[in-house]
């Protein structure tokens, strides 16, 4: 079963399994993109919930930000999944390719990690989104801003997640790190926490439309879950910069191949 290997590799990237699993299944193993997207989405729920379990206990995850932004991502994911059932496979492949290219670019640039020093945001105050996290020298408070912009970007992230069966980590980085100025550790763990709920919103649609095949989803889910356990250990000691560039190049290539295959009508 080649998809076990795909699972291992996917989790090692740290970019979330989906981004690698769908191209692997469709390009290498000739799996129809609709089955690939279904299997990928399931594995995304598994890894994100598994990782979120650990993060949430450490106190980095901002549960209010997560709940509020899940309003945007779940509606988006529901819409994206319905769109996926209507859209032709070639169109899905091309959009997937574009998202891969974008992810590669985002992953090469490290997100800014300067805290917001300006005045508190009125939306953030109303929703009580400002919080703090355990830092090296004790409790670090932070403020979040640009809530409407972050919320809109999160809706886009939800649509892409539902359409392509991925966690859309790259768009979430844009929304939380860049727009809302959430500190890096908080944004990574909070977006991870949100992925499970976002993906569950589209998984319901996928299940009802027969996109989730047990024979395919089983090895992918178990493989990714195992891979993420091992991957987390390996990544802890690895040179992350070299790794990040390598994966960015791999994803760039996969993205180009997806767009080409989509346009050439090979999927």
């Amino acid at each position: 079963m080649g998809s076990v290997a795909a699972g291992f590799l996917g989790s090692l990237t740290g970019l979330g399994g989906g981004v690698v699993i769908v191209p692997m299944l469709t390009l290498l193993l000739n799996v129809n993109i609709r089955y690939a997207v279904g299997a990928s989405l399931v594995s995304v729920i598994a890894t994100s919930s598994g990782a979120a379990a650990a993060y949430v206990k450490e106190g980095f995850t901002n549960i209010r930000i997560a709940m509020f932004l899940e309003l945007a991502t779940t509606f988006g994911a529901l819409g994206g999944a319905v769109l996926a059932t209507r859209a032709p496979a070639a169109a899905i492949a091309v959009v997937f390719g574009i998202v891969l290219l974008h992810s590669a670019v985002v992953s090469m640039r490290a997100p800014p990690d300067r805290p917001w020093e300006g005045p508190p945001d009125k939306w953030s105050a109303f929703l009580r989104l400002d919080s703090g996290y355990p830092g090296r020298d004790g409790y670090v408070p932070y403020r979040v801003v640009n809530i409407p912009a972050g919320f809109s970007l999160m809706f886009v992230a939800g649509v892409l997640s539902g359409l392509l069966g991925i966690g859309s980590g790259a768009v979430k980085v844009l929304a939380m790190d860049r727009a809302m100025r959430v500190p890096f550790k908080v944004s990574t763990t909070t977006s991870n926490f949100m992925i499970g709920v976002t993906a569950a919103a589209s998984a319901g649609v996928y299940l009802n439309r027969g996109y989730i095949d047990p024979g395919l989803a089983m090895p992918v889910m178990l493989g990714v879950l195992m891979g993420s356990l091992i991957g987390a250990r390996i990544l802890a000691g690895a040179k992350t910069k070299a790794l990040r560039i390598t994966f960015a190049v791999v994803i760039l290539a996969l993205g180009a191949e997806m767009i080409y295959s989509g346009l050439a009508g090979k999927l």
Binding site: M67, E70, L71, T74, F75, L78, A81, V82, T85, V197, A200, A201, S202, A203, G204, V205, L207, N208, R209
Partner: peptide
């Protein structure tokens, strides 16, 4: 609201 969206998706398939 989030819960309602999830339940709607799982029961009706959108």
């Amino acid at each position: 609201i989030v819960l309602a969206v999830l339940i709607y998706s799982i029961l009706s398939g959108g």
